[in-house]
Amino acid sequence: MADTILVVVEQREGKLNRVSWETLTAGQALAAEMGWMLEAAVVGSGVAGFANEIAGKKVSKVYAIESAKLEPYTPDAFVAALKQFLVSHPAKLVLMPHTYQVRDFVPKLATAMGRTAISDCIGYKKEGEKLVFTRQMFQGKLAADVSFTSDAPWFVTFQNGAYRGDKVEAGASAAPVETVNVDIADGVIRNKPHEVFKEAKQAVDLTQAEIIVAVGRGIKEQKNIEIAKQLAEALGGELAASRPICDSGWLPMDRQIGSSGQTVAPKLYLALGISGAIQHIVGMKGARTIIAVNKDSEAPIFEIADYAVVGNLFDIVPPLIEEVKKVKAGS
């Protein structure tokens, strides 16, 4: 029998997380290349609807792994459920998106099964008989190809944006859906989660901004933020920042761009002294034009920049403010 790839899609609060489609795209590509079978699973309580939605895609089978105890999410219940499922439905490869929820339970699941997870991958390669997974290291400055030396199941999580969710192939006909009821004993769940909430309403909405000047740790000191502010003003744009700047309290939290901040898509995103960690990039890669100023020619931000300036931002920004003012005055 062919080996099986199982994609575990993510649902949260009654919604299918759309990164699930990306993972399914990855699963389809892997299945085609390896000649393996592709199945999908959704874990929760009352998730048949999601299972049916996925069954429309090119997969052999979809499982709805069900228990009332899976709602709300807890790592204990998810691990118990998936472990039970994987023991009765062996898979070679288990794929999931690298979300906060998956990060919360996958290392526990792998450990409970005496296995390991290669986390936060951006792709895979088939090298002869060997399958290697590519992941970023050193905050994106280097990449690594990593292989499993353990038995199956192999757990792999894919980074947000690694595959195109809109490229997921539809199936010729709907795949069969099977409900698997799992048994989660009393006392297994130790955490008591409360409702998910959003912190007090944000004062600044950067999602509508057309021009954003963003500062990172390269700005060095709080007082230096002034020059970025002046540039933003000269351009008629908004000031934003990477997370460490907000963590330090140099700018308020609501100016943070990235996976734990705002996601923006301005006409222009000017990044000053930002290295370009993936958690920052997911929040701004949709910008139409990205300009990056960084003193390190190998900073990952240059990977996605349209225009790049390798240099000291303190040398570049003051004359840039003057030039912008000049151009504006002339027009």
């Binding site: 290697v132 970023q136 690594a144 190809d145 292989s147 499993f148």
Partner: peptide, 11 residues
């Protein structure tokens, strides 16, 4: 180890 770094490189 349950996994192995085959190689590291500049992306």
């Amino acid at each position: 180890n349950l996994q192995k770094i085959e190689r590291l490189y500049v992306p």
